[in-house]
Structure formats: structure tokens, C-alpha cells
Design a protein around this nucleic acid. Structure first.
Length: 377
RNA sequence: GGUGGGGUGGCCGAGUGGCUAAUGGCAGCAGACUGUAAAUCUGCCGGGCUCUGCCCUACGUAGGUUCGAAUCCUACCCCCACCA
């Protein structure tokens, strides 16, 4: 029910097949984010149409509303949101970071003051497991504590060690839940340690010491640290990560980040930038970023990206997209979100082909050069 | 015709002697966004220049008072409301 096959490798880059209860996922893969049970503004058919193989949901946000019991009563998250492919839920760990002003952390867990109604919601490793179990995600993420990018060794160590202690509790509670049905869900641990390589190694060793895992995540990156620091962490970890398990780089990223990650052995990515930037009118194209609100596109009849096969690019002009944004028609944000998601998914699909053909590095270099506008325009 | 109110930068709208090239908002222009408290946020927004400053032009029009006026006075033009 839970498996990962390495189909090909080209240097550190890998092509694999991940098997989950609701289907298989070809990697490398970008996973769109549907925090509250929907990819912002999009119909599931549009997400499927963009080629999404697996979707993210969020423990904290779905706990707030509609509540995991509601979802469970309605037959689980897949049925509730009408998405039959795999789902991975983030544990709420990211909210410990992003909602710092609204939470109080202690060794046992975290009290959040709900931004919805002000009520206090407590999340612990155990609660995070129970909620994700009730939601019925294919993959549940460990409840972690990530430190900001610029954290000192002390702060990063504190968060990393707490994450490890919490992981033990997550595992225990998840094993208990699995007694109900072992085929329902798998739990993935998260490596922390900030930009400090020894801490990252310790985190990985601690995780491996807690038993077998069907996948492993790298968290706490792209949270303000310089890119070279992220690359260093990935390169440092890569040789010691189990080869026969999928590696998931959480919260990353932009198109060039995907290539950077793939080149360093990452299999799975997720990021809100595709949809958030898309909503804000910022599109990724083969030739770099385009802000579709720009006056330069007022009379531009060309598609956002002539090389893209998404619903937006095959049908609409930049001039029309600009008009939709200027007129504040919801179709604008929706179309650019679809485009950006498709863009990342297609990038991962092509990377997979190149890895299988063992031409990844060369292709990625060419691709990056054109995207970053060096040597072309 | 009478009485009252009003005419401010692309638009709306503050300001009622110097701190005003003139608060705000809109429109316009540019930018940010990385496990989503974001359909959000930030910057620019009269013109010119030898651009941490300087010079023009500007608050209906024309005069005037004053060291100094969008702000006070006079005349005129226009708009609105009510009355006839």
C-alpha cells in the first residue's frame, strides 16, 4: 500500500514512483496546496487538469473549520472535497512558525488563539496525529517546530530537538491509530536544524533511530535563509538519506528551486507561491517572470507562455489576462493560478523525462539560463 | 430675478493667512510574495533639472490686501438648492 520505487537516477537526481492508498505519484512531483480543502479559487477538475497527482491539506486550518469530526462524518477528506487522488496533510507545524504572534509553545504542545473566533486551540503531537487520521490523508506529517531562517545554532537546536521528541510521540500515537487499519495512512518525519549542517545530520540520525519510515521530509527551508544555505543543507543530507524512500522538501518552491532541489535528490515539493503569486498576477514563464498587470501587456495578444499547454495559455491572451486583473474579475487570478500550477507540474514532468534519459544536468542548465534571462534575451 | 451653498492636482474630497506641490480615497505605474491569518502588502504618483537639493507651474478668472494667500477683499464667470 505504501511503496516507493526508484525508476531512474541521474547523478543525485531521481525519478521514482510513489504508491499511496489513493493512487501512485510519479516523481519528481510538485504538489499543489489546498490548505482549507481547496486550492484557492480552483475547481478540483482544474487542479486535475493541470496534472496534479497529489494534493496538500492543512491540519490546523481544517481543524478550525469545518473540524475533523465533520470531515470524518462526511466520509473523510477525499470524499468531502471530491478529490480521489492522494492527499498529504501538513501537521500544523508550519503554523507554529507562521502564526507565532497567535500561539504559545511549551514542551507538550502549542496553544493557538484562533484567528477565526479567538478560541484557544491546542495542538500536540498526539492531537495532530488524531486530526490527520480523522481527515484520512494518505500521508500525515509529523508535528514539528521550525525555526526562522536566520536562527542561531541554539534556537535551531532547540527547535530541532523538540521536533525529534515530538516525533517520538507522533509515532507512538500514529502506531496506535494504525492498529485500526494499517493501510489507511503513513506518517512522515521532518528533518529540522536550520542552516546548521551538524544539526541537520543529528536530526536525520535521530529520525532514523526511531524506526522505519515510508518517506522523509526536509523542513525549515525557504524561510528567510540565503539560497546557498538551503543548497548546502540539501547537499549535506543527500548522501545519508535512504535511497529507497521519497524525499519531500517542504514549502519549496519557485521553478528554479524545483530544479535546484531535484538536482540535489529531492522527489516531492509543495509551495503556495504558484497560487498566491498567481492570484496576485505574477506568472512564471519559460522566459522568466511576468506580472500580467503590467501596462506593457495592454495590447499583447500572445499567450502568457507560448510553450505552455495549460487551460490559460491555450486559450487566452496576455491582454485579456491584464484586463481581468485590472477589472478585478475573479477569472484572472484563477487562470494565472492554473497556469502557475501547470507550469511547476510540467517542469517536474520534464525533469523526470530528462532524468530517465540521463540528460538532466544539461537540460536543467539550459532551462535555468533561459528562465533567468541569461544568454537569451 | 432673489437668497443660500459651492468651484482644490486624471476623478472624488480635506484644508480656511506662513509647518502646502497641498491629508485621504480612487484611478494609474512599479515591486514583493516559498509546508497560505494574503483576491494581500509595499513604493511612486504636477513638470523640469547639474536631483539628500534647486527651479518652474498650480487650488474657477482677473485684480487687490499682506513680508507672505488655496485660505482675506473686490469684480466677473460657472455649478447646485430653494424661492419667485
Amino acid at each position: 500500500m505504501f511503496g516507493f520505487t526508484l525508476d531512474a537516477a541521474d547523478g543525485a537526481a531521481r525519478a521514482g514512483t510513489l504508491t499511496l492508498p489513493h493512487g501512485t505519484v510519479r516523481t519528481p512531483c510538485f504538489m499543489p496546496v489546498g490548505t482549507r480543502g481547496a486550492v484557492r479559487g480552483l475547481h478540483p477538475a482544474e487542479v486535475e487538469g493541470a496534472g496534479a497527482q497529489i494534493l496538500l491539506g492543512n491540519t490546523y486550518h481544517l481543524h478550525l473549520r469545518p473540524g475533523e469530526h465533520t470531515v470524518e462524518t462526511l466520509g473523510g477528506l477525499h470524499r468531502f472535497i471530491s478529490w480521489q487522488r492522494p492527499i498529504l496533510t501538513d501537521s500544523g507545524g508550519f503554523q507554529v512558525f507562521s502564526l507565532t504572534a497567535l500561539r504559545k509553545l511549551d514542551e507538550d504542545g502549542v496553544d493557538f488563539v484562533s484567528h477565526v473566533d479567538g478560541s484557544v486551540r491546542r495542538l500536540t503531537p498526539e492531537r495532530a496525529m488524531e486530526i490527520q487520521w480523522a481527515l484520512g490523508a494518505d500521508v500525515a506529517m509529523a508535528f514539528d517546530h521550525l525555526a526562522p531562517g536566520a536562527s542561531s545554532v541554539e534556537a535551531a537546536r532547540d527547535a530541532m530537538e523538540r521536533t525529534l521528541r515530538w516525533l517520538g510521540r507522533c509515532r507512538t500515537r500514529h502506531d496506535e491509530l494504525m492498529a485500526e487499519s494499517a493501510d489507511r495512512q503513513t506518517l512522515w518525519p521532518i528533518i529540522q536544524g536550520g542552516t546548521h549542517l551538524p544539526l541537520r545530520r543529528e536530526s536525520l540520525e535521530g529520525i532514523m533511530g526511531l524506526g522505519e519510515w515510508t518517506g522523509i521530509a526536509i523542513g525549515g527551508l525557504s524561510v528567510g535563509e540565503p539560497k546557498p544555505a538551503m543548497h548546502a543543507v540539501l547537499e549535506h543530507l543527500e548522501p545519508d538519506l535512504p535511497r529507497d524512500r521519497p524525499r519531500y522538501l517542504m514549502g519549496v518552491g519557485f521553478p528554479d528551486d524545483l530544479l535546484d532541489g531535484i538536482a540535489r535528490g529531492v522527489d516531492l515539493f509543495d509551495c503556495v507561491a504558484a497560487t498566491r503569486n498567481g492570484r496576485h498576477g505574477s506568472a512564471w514563464t519559460t522566459d522568466g517572470r511576468v506580472n500580467v498587470r503590467g501596462a506593457a501587456y495592454r495590447l499583447d495578444e500572445s499567450p502568457l507562455d507560448p510553450e505552455c499547454d495549460c487551460e490559460c495559455c491555450v486559450r487566452f491572451s496576455r491582454a485579456y489576462l491584464r484586463h481581468l486583473f485590472v477589472a478585478e474579475e475573479h477569472l484572472g487570478p484563477r487562470l494565472v493560478s492554473i497556469h502557475n500550477i501547470r507550469f511547476l507540474i510540467r517542469l517536474a514532468e520534464r525533469a523526470r523525462e530528462q532524468i530517465i534519459d540521463r540528460t538532466f544536468d544539461r537540460w536543467a542548465a539550459d532551462w535555468r539560463r533561459r528562465y533567468l534571462g541569461k544568454g537569451s534575451a
